[in-house]
Design a protein around this nucleic acid. Sequence first.
DNA 1: GAAAGTAGTTCGTTTTACGAACTTTTGTCA
DNA 2: TGACAAAAGTTCGTAAAACGAACTACTTTC
Lengths: 148, 148
Amino acid sequence: MVTTKEPTLSFTSALVRLAHLVQQVFGEVSREHDLTPQQAQLLCLLVGGPVGMGELSRALHLEKSSLTGLVDRAAKRGLVRRTRSSHDRRACLIELTGEGQRMGELAHEGVAARLETLAGDLPAGHRDLLASAVETLLSRHTAGPPRA
Amino acid sequence: MVTTKEPTLSFTSALVRLAHLVQQVFGEVSREHDLTPQQAQLLCLLVGGPVGMGELSRALHLEKSSLTGLVDRAAKRGLVRRTRSSHDRRACLIELTGEGQRMGELAHEGVAARLETLAGDLPAGHRDLLASAVETLLSRHTAGPPRA
DNA sequence: GAAAGTAGTTCGTTTTACGAACTTTTGTCA
DNA sequence: TGACAAAAGTTCGTAAAACGAACTACTTTC
């Protein structure tokens, strides 16, 4: 149970500005580790285990051809590796290299830490409410963007 | 006064996924109006009146040279116009053309409408709390990202 | 009035992102 | 079985986005 105070920002403006803030945090953390934000996002998505191009494409909302390029560059940097699926010889699974795993974890932790710091003042009740409100929004938007 | 339910998503994950969602909405709306997301963002930022390059650069978190390119392309499409400042002959103000104003308003309304729809279920108390929580986060991050 | 700083631009580079056309493999169904 | 549609990725060409370094043109400061 928490009390509500009157916001000076409209609901939608708040969402947009929040998105901007998160993006910026992601950018800062990526740069610290010498990654592009897109690469960091890719690595974060892969720390849970190998994922196929199709699923990555859906998770990142990228066209297949865009994703091919992103994976190519990440592979050239030794962060990621393509494995041919055994069930379906067209498909491939993208998996992290040791270096990629390390970087992915660093990026993930960096973002989480930065956001935790920014949320320092926020009472736990507010955090939970915010998180569950976001869940509601996401549930209405069938496609599932990536974790991070 | 609102009751809090237990979220299944961590606080930071919720923020990241929310950012992704907002970005996606922005992308969809931009595409509908045949704008790039960056152009739409620029137009939204200018609907309040002309702004100088320096301030735009800070608001959008772009290097000066990146912004020059963005404004160039928007100007080439007839959405925006450069005006030399009378006080400082180095500086310029970027202002919307009639077409730019129209598109900026459409984009802004489109994004707001989409987000409102997604938030349909959300009780007003939750919205207000979310908005004021965002204000708290923003206030800790001195630089002020753009409205939209 | 010279030096230092500020506002923007230019240039070259890399990354991102798209769509259309393509190859290979898988599934379907007649 | 064998043709044919569909699916998974890649390739190619293109445009936009973003950066940093070096530059020009004004202002401010001392």
